[in-house]
Design a binder for these strands. Structure first.
Lengths: 256, 256
DNA sequence: TCAAAAGTGTTGGCACTACACCCATGA
DNA sequence: TCATGGGTGTAGTGCCAACACTTTTGA
């Protein structure tokens, strides 16, 4: 087959050898990871179900820019890794996540989102099972924050009572959380992502709580179970420990 | 307020001045634009409706890499423009688009998608009204291609009979079109994007054809009209010219 | 009078909602 | 015995698909 030559008479090999990557100014590219998990609040009243809350993982910035602010875990991508690999690598620097649900959210490209230089940020959304996700010891600067609605405003609060308003997050990470919240609420209704937030075995009430806490509304038990029952498989085992035993189920499909 | 200093004793200003952008290798970033339009085939039989087809805009590559292949219009982003601005700029180099629907699709980051260097590609999907979108004269290398299903395979064909199979597109642009097709089919069902593909005034049959050609299935008239009727407004005008006059409608909301 | 499209009506099924009820359990 | 959750049943509503039908038009 004839080797193709361009208008300068170059073959592709010759062209690629002569291509000067430094000719154009290039932006930096980061991945920013929005990690959602469901937290369970232990309850003293054995009669009552444990309450659940929706949380995100934040990192305290000890360096400029946005020193002393909280941000999403992430970092600059390397030249020899894909975006998804970069997301997983930067997550593993902070947590022990493995085998998680990971989905690209959106790419943010405002010109001044980072004061250092032009930075394009590819946001990823991860859903993890909090009980299987430990924050690595080295990272005292990493913590889970609960998403709370106060009036019209969403805020973030950790168990030390530190409150972060969305606009006070570093960079445009408040916008990323808002967008991720929109996405997870939508996808909850037409996909099976909820199961990625739970352990393998769960009760119907626990599953329903996941939906309720993410959608931020009460659901009725009978209707919820009818809707979900073809997605789960009864295990003929009961969850005991405190209250009336509840049937355990597992997800019917592949998880991630 | 006290100026914050980092562990090296630097203020943010000092830090930013000392920040060396060239310290890390950076990828290039492109926008790749997937432009959809509905084409109408004029029909000699006055009895029959004009057929419609779904088309995408492709550019013929006269340079390496992928010389002689077709690709999506797009280009490298500049340091002083947002992603969306880059998308619009690169589109305007090829067509007379204005006031179009534009939506970010997905960001592609495979390591070797471009043989020149590491390139992250942010894909955008645009929906245009073909009659108001002229290809600029300079661009003899730009053309509309119809998406056709041949057996299990999707192919692209322009009016000169040039056929391009998806894997034969330059870069990973075949994957982008596949993904965009998935997106537009989904969004057609739960949003009002269809109206972005039509002129301001249209008949019910024309609107239904848009849905049919994108979803690639026949719909029933009565059911379609019931579903759509709260989204449109009757204009009490008729489209004449050849056949039984049909009521004209316009979209009930804001278009983009 | 015929083919094709414009336009409308009817029916049945399915999914979702609201609500109600009984059962099991530990304090 | 009571509060709480586990688990199930029922009736009503509204959406949607399938299908059938009438009207209008130009050839």
């Amino acid at each position: 087959m004839k080797v193709k030559r361009d208008m300068n008479g170059l073959t592709e090999d010759e062209f690629l050898k002569s291509y000067d990557v430094s000719k154009f100014e290039r932006p930096s590219v980061t991945v920013d990871n929005l990690v959602f998990a469901i937290d369970e609040i232990e309850n003293n009243d054995i009669r009552k179900l444990n309450d659940k809350r929706l949380q995100v993982l934040l990192v305290y910035r000890e360096n400029h820019p946005f020193i002393d602010k909280w941000c999403l875990p992430g970092g600059f991508i390397k030249m020899d890794e894909t975006l998804e690999e970069a997301s997983l690598r930067t997550l593993e620097e902070k947590t022990s996540v493995k085998d998680i649900y990971l989905e690209q959210l959106y790419t943010f490209g405002e010109i001044n989102r980072d004061p250092r230089t032009r930075v394009i940020g590819v946001a990823y959304m991860a859903l993890v099972n909090k009980k299987e996700t430990k924050i690595v010891d080295e990272s005292k600067n990493t913590d889970w924050f609960t998403i709370k609605q106060i009036g019209d405003e969403l805020i973030l609060e950790n168990d030390n009572g530190i409150i972060v308003r969305f606009p006070d997050l570093a960079f445009d990470h408040g916008k990323i959380i808002e967008y991720g919240l929109f996405r997870i609420r939508n996808k909850l209704e037409y996909t099976d992502i909820a199961f990625s937030l739970l352990p393998k075995e769960f009760t119907m009430a626990e599953l329903q709580q996941v939906y309720e806490v993410i959608l931020d509304k009460k659901l009725t038990k009978a209707n919820f179970q009818r809707k979900i029952k073809n997605k789960v498989q009864c295990l003929n085992k009961y969850k005991t420990g405190g209250f009336r035993p509840a049937m355990l189920y597992k997800y019917n499909g592949k998880k991630h």
